[in-house]
Every structure is written in structure tokens, then in C-alpha cells.
Write a protein that binds this DNA or RNA. Structure first.
Length: 868
RNA sequence: GGGCAGUUAGCUCAGUUGGUAGAGCAACGCGUUUACACCGCGUAGGUCGGGAGUUCGAGCCUCUCACUGCCCACCA
């Protein structure tokens, strides 16, 4: 017997340890089994587990456990990436708390601290993932800065440099002044902020003014031109004239460029080539001077007037405006919402900044990566993400891969007297200095599918497990990660990194709102596990994962899943109370009792449904199949329908029923295991009498239903029985017949098939309906009887003394009009020549059948009305 | 400005080749019948965002409009 109630906490930790101890998660490259490989999106090493991880990990774990049960040599390689900016920030902050600056501490000591930090938070997240039941091959855990992976990074950099795909360039980048590093374009998110549009009057050297508008007035310190449209008649006479820049006193030209929109503002625009992306392009076109006015921390530098030097960019903004106002050069100020570039990671406001960085030429690499998806070698699920992928890949910009950070892979480039050398080691000779910068974290995570398998060495792992089968990830990192893995995989492995990409959506709260700390609607998966158990969380996640849809997760849903776990637990306990055990020798083909045969057939249908759902990544279907089967088919029907046998005295039938029950439960547990690994194993151990042993459910084979009977007759018979029972129950309930009241029922007007079924199921009818007895009867209805109409059948319940017959009359009248409306509809269809001619035969036949059924029911109901 | 989703029962959502609309939760009624009140039985609730079209037949296909969300680009 199991504990009275399921206690997830007592079970989960122990089972997980057991699985690990038995090495169930380990892949074996020397095994002859087909491989199944799955990549884990590396959670960054500073992270704590959030619902998004729970989602990704749960889905992957379901696939992986299913693969193991279908006899695949399964590799689920886990790991973390080094999250350069995030770690660098944490360490810098910790040092600051100790009163130390990053630069004082020095690179070496700083990296020591960073490694410490990595060790701490890295183990935290791994433990949290284990709480989710994630059956990763932990012995193969990798980290992007491991020796092997670092070797791969170096080789990739050097190779790409040799091929001319990596180059150094000086241009405007998005600069993070907080961390003093460049960031790549896709790490930038634009946010609308309330700001102002300042209209500034620039004095012409020869007298008069032009007005320019700007949202960042401080950049005027770096202006090197004013442009007007060449066709703008208002200004053509000004082209070639000179402006004396206020405050600075620099003389700058007015030039013509058709970039400008004549309709917008005054039609004049200031140009600051060193601090704006569009202005930069204009500056290049006209060979304008590029004056950098900022330091790396976004304070004003030596190229600005003395009173501004060292001042913060936003302070300078205020001061500039004040000066313009004082000079009478501030024409007007309009409030305006404009979008401002922020660092995606921490919301620092970024500055366009002129620097020299390493770039990766992506156009060449993108082509095979696009082709691989077009040709179907890689498949997005759902497919519509392919458009997003193509759109980005086809418009891809060169990738700025260098970062002015210490934590990461230091760029294998050395400099001496303006010479650059790229290679594994510093070149011989004195005076070579290595590039202090590191590579973008995504550069190394992009190599993940093969670097973690030992590339560039030809390891057995690499040969067996590449390409991987499926990548499960959120759409938010298609650009960051998926696209990069595709490009690197095609370039260095000459093959796709994965065959399928399952894209899941965002987790939202119960009301479809984005989860955020400020809204207070964040669900902590660890708290959920604590309260409801891992299996409940996993089931909820799976059941909500429909392709292409966002996921709204709320407590009420997890509660429902917890109830589902309890239901399964109680149902199992009930079986054990009835001496049900799993009998391996039981052959489902030998079952005679129609209810057992029906159960076996339904289970075969379930297996089929599950196979299809797994093939199509229909996580919602596969969970709902399990729920519906367990709760409705197995518990509500099968366990109830077999009670007359289990409490009866036909020993042979009793034995067969126990066997079937145990057998069905065992198969069901196997089918449920990938989704709910803990509770199913705990029950399974008890059912198979192996509690406390090393036996485990994960190593059992996935059920093969082909060998089982699929008995259409039993299915039809039991469906008939269930419909009869429901009809009787509805009649009783609607007439407020107390549950306790046992009454004699009469069955009337039955066909031969029904007579047979009636005889077959007499006992069950009694047991399920609290009707004391049934008798076959063909006489007249008593005035006080109520008729329950079932499929081709009617049951008469003498209800005298229990029933308000006026109410009953109304009910029947209502039912009659409902049937009549439906009948009219069907007859309309059947009367339509085109329908009869063109609709498939089975559809027409179905309509005719339901017309006949309704007619029969109507006749009976009308008889009842007349009887009253 | 470009693109992609979505709009189905009070709520959150399924609905896979077009063939008489489903689930969970919530609601209502009855109920402690020998697994389970984290339960059982029953009931109610939808002109599938609006409009048009194709079809014998449209939640599903086409067009159009409206609203919501997201992504990309731009914003002097």
C-alpha cells in the first residue's frame, strides 16, 4: 500500500538520487542504439531558475525520457554560458562594496573573483534544475569557458580570420557607458521615453538664423555641419554658407543632402557624425570631421569647452539648454516621446560611440544557414518562425564580436608597433601585447552543439551525436543563439546543428500579462514545487504548451494538476486495496470480460494518440490525452464498472479483472512517466512489488499497442452501457430522486442487440445507477413513470412519490422542441440535392443515422407526454 | 513604416487535410453510496471579433474592416 496521500517532497529527492546513482541519464557513444540528442539552451551562470527555464527544461525532459523509453541512446548535454556582462557587473559591484575599483584590482585577481562567482551561482542553478527532474547527463556538463570549449573558440576565431571573415573596423557602435564596452546591435532594445524636442537657433555667419531640432542637445558640441534638402527652395540660398556654432564657436558648413525630410520640423538638421548613426553615414558621404565629445563613461571629454569637461552627459544636456536660453537661441521646447537605445540586459542608456572593434562578416555565413532551412534540413516548429528567421538572416549586419570586458575568451590577437598577429600563441619576439578585449558570449555559445562534443577533435561523441535531433527554446533567442549556431554549424561541421527547432512562447501570468517583478505576478518555480510538487508543475507546463501560443500560468492551473496527481495516487491505492498487482505474464488477448476488453482497447487508442502527439511535439495533446484517459476512462468508468465484479463472487472474472486492472495501470504509468516521472515511478514500484530496489520505470519500454486487441464490439457495447447509465442518472438527478432511493427500473422496446447488451450488463447497470433491479418489459407506461432515453433504448423508472411531474413535463417538452429543431436542420440538409450528391457517403450516412435516432427518441418522448 | 501572431463558454485556452463547437477553472443543483470533498453525479453557458465571398456545407479557405499583443526598422 502507498501512503494515504501523495507527498511529493518525500518522493522526489530520493528518486532523483536513485536515477543518478544508476547512471540512467548517461549517454553511451559506444552503444549500438540509435542516438537521440538534445541541446540545452545554456542558462547563464548568474541566473536563478525562473519559469522560462522550467518550461524549456520540462519540455526537453519529456522528450528525452520518451526517447530513452523508445530505446534510443540519449544524450542531453547540459551546461551554462559565462554571461560576460552579467558576471562582470556582479563582480565589479562586489568589489565596489569592498571599496575596490576593478582597475586597481587588476585583470588576474578580477578573473579569480569571477571564477569564484561562477562556481557559486553555477552550482545553484544546476541544483534547481535537478528539482525539476531534469535528466541531463550531468557528467558531461560543460561551461563555455572550459578548456575544450575555449580551444574551439580560439580555433574558430583564427580560422575565420584567415578566411577574411573576421576583421577589425573603426565605426560607430552602441556603447554601454556603465560597463564601458561595445554591445552588438541585437543586444540593444529601443524603449519609448518621455523627453523633449529642443528647437535651437544656429546663427549664420552672415547674419540671421536657421533652426534645428534635437532630442539630445548636448551633441551639438560635436556638430560639424547643418544639412538641408537640395530641393528645398526655402534654403537653397543657404547651401555653402557657414554657421558659427554657439558656445563652441566652431564654424561649420551648411550642406545639401537628400536624407532630410523637408516636411519634418524646420527642414534643417544638425549633423553630429561621431554620435548618431544616421549622422555618421552623412558624415562619411560628405567627408565631415568626426568629433568625439564623450569619454568611455559618457562624460564630456577634452574636445568640449573647459566648463563641460568631466560633466555627465545628462547634466551637460541641461546646461546646454540653459545656455541657449540665456543666449536667446532657444526657439521652443516640445514634449516628445522618443525611443532611446537601452542595453537589453540592464537598461543602461547606450551611446553611439566611435571605436575600433572586431567584426564578423556574417553575410557569407548566413547563406548556407538560410539554405539549410529552405531545403528542409532544419525544420522550425511551428513553421511560421521560419519567416522571422529568414527576414533576419537575409538582412543580417556584421556582428561586433569584441567586448571591452575581462570575463570571457580573450581575443587571440597580438599587437606590436601597429602590426597585428592572430594565432594560438603570442608570436616570438619582444613587445607583443595581446588584445585586452574578450569575445561576445554568444560567440562561444554559438559553437555549443559541436564544441561541447569535443570539436575540433573527432571524438566518438561528435561523430555519433552531431547533428542533434531537436533544439527546444524560446523565440526570444532565435537571433542571439539559434542563428549563430546555424551559421557556425554549417561553416565548421558542414552540417546543420539540429534537425528540428521547437520554438515555445513566453510564459505569462493567468491573465495573459507578462511576468515582471514590478507587477508582482512572478511565479517562482521552486515555490510552486514546494507547494504542489514537481509533477504538478511539469504537467501544467506540458498541458499549456500548444504550438505557437503564449502560455498563461496561474496557481489555479497548477492546483488542478496537483489534483490530477492525487487522483492517480488514489486510484492506484484503490487498486492495491483490491489486491491488484502487475502480472507480467498476463496476455491482454486472453481477456474475456467485455469491460476488460474495452479497457485494453482504449489503452491501445491512447498509445496511438501519444505516439502521434510526440511525433508532432503536441505537448498539450499528449498531456490532455493522459488526463482524459486517467480521470474519465480509467477512474470514472473502468474502476466503477468493475466494482460489481470485484465485489461479486465470480472468481474467474475477478481474477481476470484484477489482472487487467494491474496491467492497464502499469502501461498507463509508462505512458505518463515522461511528463510526471516521480509519482509514476513511486506507484510503479509498489505495483510491481519492487519498492526499495533499483528497478525503475524509465528503463521500461514504451508500450507497443499493436499486439493488443482493439475490440470494436466491446467498445460499442461499453459506450452503449455508459450512455444508458448517464441517461438514467440524468433522469434521476433532474427529478431529484435521492441517491439512496433504490427503485425498480423497467426496460422497454428493446431490439435484439439491446436485449443482448442488456443481459450482458444487467449487473453493471445495477451497480452504477442505484437502481435496485431491471426487468425487460413491453407493457404500457404508468402515468407516474419517467423515461430515460438512451441510444436505441428506453428505461422506465417508476418514480411515484419522488417526482414533481409538472416539472418533469416541462423538461420533456423542452427536450422535444430541442430534438425537433435539430431534426428540422438535418432534414433540410438531406433535402438538399447537392448535399446528397456531393458530400462523402459516410457524412450522408451519419446524417441519416442521426435523423433516425432523433425520430425514434422523439416518438418515445411524445409517448411520455401523452401518458401524463 | 515593414512583418508575425491573436480575437472561440464568465476566465485561461484547445480545436491537425472544410462535415452538426471542446477542456480546465469558475457558476448552479443534488450528494458523505465500500479509492478519492485535492471527490462523485447532474445542469447551465458560445449567432467561434464585424462584414463580404468561395462551397451542398466555413471556427477552419479568400478578401476586407476593427481591436490586442509581439518582432524589426526609423524617429532632426
Amino acid at each position: 500500500m502507498l501512503e494515504k496521500t501523495y507527498n511529493a517532497k518525500n518522493v522526489e529527492g530520493n528518486l532523483y538520487k536513485k536515477w543518478e546513482r544508476l547512471g540512467l541519464f548517461s549517454a553511451d557513444p559506444s552503444s549500438s542504439k540509435d542516438p537521440f540528442t538534445i541541446m540545452i539552451p545554456p542558462p547563464n551562470v548568474t541566473g536563478t531558475l525562473h519559469v522560462g527555464h522550467a518550461l524549456t527544461m520540462t519540455l526537453q525532459d519529456i522528450l528525452v525520457r520518451h526517447a530513452r523509453m523508445t530505446n534510443k541512446d540519449t544524450l542531453w548535454q547540459p551546461g551554462t554560458d559565462h554571461a560576460s556582462i552579467a558576471v562582470e557587473r556582479i563582480v565589479t559591484q562586489k568589489l565596489a562594496a569592498e571599496g575596490k575599483a576593478k582597475k586597481e584590482v587588476g585583470r588576474e585577481k578580477f578573473l579569480e573573483r569571477a571564477w569564484q562567482q561562477k562556481e557559486e551561482s553555477g552550482t545553484t542553478i544546476v541544483n534547481q534544475l535537478k528539482h525539476l527532474g531534469a535528466s541531463c547527463d550531468w557528467d558531461r556538463e560543460r561551461f563555455t569557458m572550459d578548456e575544450g570549449l575555449s580551444k574551439a573558440v580560439k580555433k574558430v576565431f583564427i580560422d575565420l580570420h584567415k578566411k577574411g571573415l573576421i576583421y577589425r573596423g573603426t565605426r560607430l557602435v552602441n556603447w554601454d557607458p556603465m560597463h564601458q564596452t561595445a554591445v552588438s546591435d541585437i543586444e540593444v532594445s529601443h524603449k519609448d521615453m518621455k523627453g523633449f524636442m529642443w528647437h535651437l537657433k544656429y546663427p549664420l555667419k552672415d547674419g540671421g538664423f536657421v533652426t534645428v531640432a534635437t532630442t539630445r542637445p548636448e551633441t551639438m558640441l560635436g556638430d560639424t555641419a547643418v544639412i538641408v534638402h537640395p530641393d528645398d527652395k526655402r534654403y537653397t540660398h543657404l547651401i555653402g554658407q557657414t554657421i558659427t556654432l554657439p558656445i563652441v564657436g566652431r564654424e561649420i558648413p551648411i550642406i545639401a543632402d537628400d536624407y532630410i525630410d523637408m516636411e519634418f520640423g524646420s527642414g534643417c538638421m544638425k549633423v553630429t557624425p561621431a554620435h548618431d548613426f544616421n549622422d555618421y553615414e552623412i558624415g562619411k558621404r560628405h567627408d565631415l570631421e568626426m568629433i568625439n565629445i564623450l569619454t568611455k563613461t559618457a562624460t564630456l571629454n577634452e574636445n568640449t569647452p573647459a566648463e563641460y569637461q568631466g560633466m555627465d552627459r545628462f547634466e551637460a544636456r541641461t546646461k546646454i539648454v540653459a545656455e541657449f536660453e540665456a543666449l536667446g537661441l532657444l526657439e521652443k521646447v516640445e514634449p516628445r516621446e522618443n525611443s532611446v537605445a537601452h542595453a537589453e540586459r540592464d537598461d543602461t542608456i547606450l551611446e553611439p560611440y566611435l571605436t575600433t572593434q572586431w567584426y564578423l562578416k556574417t553575410e557569407t555565413l548566413a547563406k548556407p544557414a538560410i539554405e539549410a532551412v529552405k531545403s528542409g534540413k532544419v525544420e522550425f516548429i511551428p513553421k511560421n518562425w521560419e519567416k522571422t528567421y529568414f527576414h533576419w538572416m537575409e538582412n543580417i549586419q556584421d556582428w561586433c564580436i569584441s567586448r571591452q570586458l575581462w570575463w570571457g575568451h580573450q581575443i587571440p590577437a597580438w599587437y606590436k608597433d601597429g602590426e597585428i598577429y592572430v594565432g594560438e600563441e603570442a608570436p616570438k619576439g619582444e613587445g607583443w601585447v595581446q588584445d585586452p578585449d574578450t569575445l561576445d558570449t554568444w560567440f562561444s555559445s554559438g559553437l555549443w552543439p559541436f564544441s561541447t562534443l569535443g570539436w575540433p577533435d573527432k571524438t566518438p561523441e561528435l561523430q555519433k551525436y552531431y547533428p542533434t535531433d531537436v533544439l527546444v527554446t524560446g523565440f526570444d533567442i532565435i537571433f542571439f543563439w539559434v542563428a549563430r549556431m546555424m551559421m557556425f554549424g554549417m561553416e565548421f561541421m558542414n552540417d546543420v546543428p539540429f534537425r528540428k527547432i521547437f520554438i515555445h512562447a513566453l510564459v505569462r501570468d493567468e491573465n495573459g500579462q507578462k511576468m515582471s517583478k514590478s507587477k508582482g505576478n512572478v511565479l517562482d518555480p521552486l515555490e510552486i514545487i514546494e507547494e504542489f510538487g514537481t509533477d504538478a508543475l511539469r504537467y501544467t507546463i506540458a498541458s499549456l504548451t500548444a504550438p505557437g501560443a503564449d502560455i498563461s500560468l496561474g496557481k489555479s492551473k497548477i492546483e488542478a494538476s496537483r489534483n490530477f496527481c492525487t487522483k492517480l495516487w488514489n486510484a492506484s491505492n484503490y487498486a492495491f486495496m483490491n489486491e491488484v498487482k502487475y502480472d507480467e505474464s498476463f496476455d491482454p488477448n486472453t481477456a474475456k470480460n467485455p469491460i476488460n476488453r474495452w479497457m485494453i482497447s482504449k489503452l491501445a487508442e491512447l498509445v496511438e494518440g501519444q505516439n502521434k502527439a510526440y511525433a508532432d511535439f503536441r505537448f498539450n495533446d499528449l498531456s490532455q490525452n493522459l488526463y482524459h484517459f486517467t480521470w474519465d476512462t480509467y477512474c470514472s468508468l473502468y474502476l466503477e464498472l468493475t466494482k460489481p465484479v470485484l465485489y461479486g463472487d465470480d472468481e474467474a472474472d475477478k481474477k481476470e479483472t484484477r489482472q487487467t486492472m494491474g496491467w492497464a495501470l502499469e502501461k498507463l504509468l509508462r505512458l505518463m512517466h515522461p511528463v510526471m516521472p516521480f509519482i509514476t515511478e513511486e506507484i510503479w514500484l509498489e505495483l510491481t512489488g519492487q519498492t526499495g530496489t533499483d528497478a525503475n520505470l524509465m528503463s521500461q519500454a514504451w508500450p507497443e499497442a499493436l499486439a493488443w486487441p482493439h475490440d470494436e464490439k466491446s467498445i460499442a457495447d461499453v459506450e452503449w452501457l455508459v450512455s444508458v447509465i448517464s441517461s438514467i442518472r440524468a433522469a434521476r438527478s433532474e427529478n431529484n430522486v435521492p441517491n439512496k432511493a433504490e427503485i425498480d427500473a423497467t426496460v422497454r422496446g428493446v431490439s435484439d442487440v439491446d436485449v443482448e447488451r442488456f443481459k450482458m450488463f444487467k449487473n453493471y447497470l445495477k451497480g452504477m445507477t442505484r437502481v435496485a433491479g431491471f426487468k425487460l418489459h413491453s407493457g404500457e407506461l404508468a402515468k407516474t413513470d419517467v423515461v430515460a432515453v438512451a441510444e436505441g433504448f428506453e428505461i422506465v423508472l417508476p418514480l411515484e412519490g419522488h417526482v414533481d411531474f409538472e416539472a418533469e413535463k416541462e423538461r420533456v417538452a423542452k427536450e422535444i422542441s430541442k430534438f425537433e429543431a435539430e431534426l428540422a436542420k438535418i432534414e433540410g440538409m438531406l433535402g438538399n440535392e447537392n448535399f446528397v450528391k456531393r458530400a462523402p457517403e459516410h457524412v450522408v450516412a451519419e446524417q441519416k443515422a442521426s435523423r433516425d435516432a432523433i425520430l425514434a427518441d422523439l416518438t418515445k418522448l411524445k409517448a411520455v407526454m401523452e401518458a401524463r
